[in-house]
Design a protein around this nucleic acid. Structure first.
Length: 466
RNA sequence: GGCGGCGUCGCCAAGUGGUAAGGCAGAGGUCUGCAAAACCUCCACCAUCGGUUCGAAUCCGAUCGCCGCCUCCA
């Protein structure tokens, strides 16, 4: 039985979608004003594993990930650079999509932009104005928290003990509010050159939380299954989404709330101030392979704080290498006609353990351990030539199925070796045959330098990338 | 001030009452012309102190240390 830890209750709950066989997910996406950083991608890889696993479990998945293309930072940035919102956000959205592909993150079914949904947001605000949960002040419109009784149910925060501004993040633009805790739904323009939209509720632009409520309801309905995000969004973002959504519809907004913990870099919070702020591109420039990054990001369960380190990347890379070598060995294993089926049985056990682990709130650490158990069981069988054709197929199918969720092996990738390299391999084989090992080693060094690895085996010399 | 999380092998990291998964790194060995890959063997008194229990890394309390959120950071 698949279970998730629901932030709303703190409990591990059996997952049951509203509609049989289909899951509707809303995942908080990027604000496209800059390059996304590695911490962002911990969360986005989590979303990806979530959707892939739901499909593994037979569900049809509809995931909506919003693209925030208007907010304070974007507005300030465009004014400073004297460019349009479109110019800035299109550029960084493109980079973002590239980065997602680099990390083998599947594209969500819907990626709506906030600026394309202004009418939906305005309609939501009108609804809240009509039922008295929102009010206008100096041209802006605010949500009246005192009008929504369950406020705080997600984050467990009580308004009394909560000191607004304690974290030093008070709204710099000082909007007028009836209560410090109230949040803005619609912002009247305050800055020179600030982009605003004319509407029935006045000229302005949407507040932070509004887009998520409007767009999730549009694409997923007033109540949907899973709402996911980073832990920092629990309060105030998701708390406010609940208030304005449920305040408007009177219905449960999202049923399961899943939040991923942040990562640290070398045991330290990632921050520009500490100089340890890393974008995906920074890492790639330093020669880190993308799949090692993905592997590291999912090597710990999404709800644990991950320590992202250079050593960790090296270890991830080596772990991946072991997995890839295993797949290659299984593929090339000589068929044993009298195999006893132990390989196939091990594959079945792996899938069972893998599913049990993932069923437990997506425990990717244990799921990876299941895969390595298979590696550890089957490798000796390969050495002993006990793998039959049926075993091989079962093992490869099981690995493929698991990697459909993990997405780290790139199984379909072209592994062909260029002719120049094959030529060198032939030269070396010739040198070895004439026992000219000096020359053979020299040639091997050249092959290594070109990024290929030589392996001599009883079945002949093999060469592969990297 | 309010709310919450965490301290497990050199590193990463599972395990939430029955006696420590997995990966990386390391040591020794097999195989190899040498390597590589693979295999075999080895590698943890679970922050500290006290308590509950037949039994605790796991529950309770205290202490020390680290971290997150508290109005626009995933």
């Amino acid at each position: 039985m698949l279970r998730f830890r629901n932030t709303l209750t703190g409990e591990l709950e059996p997952f049951e979608p509203i509609e049989e066989g289909r899951v509707r997910i809303y995942a908080c996406g990027p604000t496209v004003w800059n390059f996304a950083h590695i911490g962002n991608f911990k969360t986005f890889v989590f979303y990806d594993v979530l959707r892939r696993y739901l499909r593994f479990r037979g569900y049809k998945v509809t995931e909506v990930m919003n693209v925030t293309d208007v907010d304070d930072r974007i507005v300030e940035q465009t004014i400073e650079l004297k460019i349009s919102i479109e110019e800035l956000t299109t550029k960084y959205l493109d980079y973002f999509l590239e980065d997602m592909a680099t990390l083998n993150i599947e594209k969500p079914e819907v990626m709506p932009k906030a600026t394309d949904h202004i009418p939906e947001m305005v309609a939501l605000v009108e609804k809240l104005l009509a039922n008295g949960m929102a009010y206008e002040a100096e041209g802006s419109i605010y949500f009246r928290i005192s009008a929504f009784e369950p406020y705080g149910k997600l984050s467990g925060k009580k308004l009394e003990g909560n000191q607004a501004g304690r974290g030093g993040r008070v709204d710099a633009q000082e909007y007028a509010k009836a209560d410090v805790s109230d949040f803005v739904l619609w912002k009247a323009p305050k800055l020179e050159g600030e982009r605003s939209w004319d509407s029935a509720i006045g000229a302005g632009r949407p507040g932070w939380h509004l887009e998520c409520s409007a767009m999730s309801m549009k694409y997923l309905g007033e109540t949907f299954d899973i709402h996911a995000g980073g832990e920092d969004l629990i309060f105030p973002h998701h708390e406010n989404e609940i208030a304005q959504s449920e305040g408007a519809t009177g219905k449960t907004f999202a049923r399961y709330w899943l939040h991923s913990k942040f990562l640290n870099i070398e045991n330290q919070k990632m921050s520009k101030r500490f100089g340890n702020f890393k974008t995906l591109r920074d890492l790639l420039e330093n020669g880190v392979e993308p799949m090692a990054i993905r592997y590291l990001l999912l090597s710990a369960p999404y709800r644990t704080q991950l320590n992202f380190t250079a050593d960790g990347l090296d270890a991830a890379s080596a772990s991946l290498e072991r997995m890839r070598n295993f797949v290659r060995r299984v593929r090339e294993a000589q068929s044993a006609p009298d195999g006893d089926g132990a390989g196939g049985a091990a594959a079945a056990r792996m899938l069972e353990a893998f599913q049990a682990a993932m069923d437990d709130d997506l425990n990717t650490s244990v799921a990876l351990a299941a895969v390595f158990s298979l590696v550890n069981e089957v490798n000796p069988m390969i050495d002993a030539r006990k793998i039959s054709d049926a075993d091989r197929e079962a093992i490869l199918a099981a690995i493929e199925r698991a990697d459909g969720v993990l997405g780290v092996l790139a199984l379909g990738e072209d592994e062909s070796v260029p002719a120049e390299i094959l030529e060198l391999v032939a030269q070396r084989t010739e040198a070895r045959r004439s026992r000219d090992f000096r020359l053979a080693d020299e040639v091997r060094d050249r092959i290594t330098a070109a990024g290929y690895v030589i392996e001599d085996s009883p079945d002949g010399t093999k060469v592969r990338k990297r």
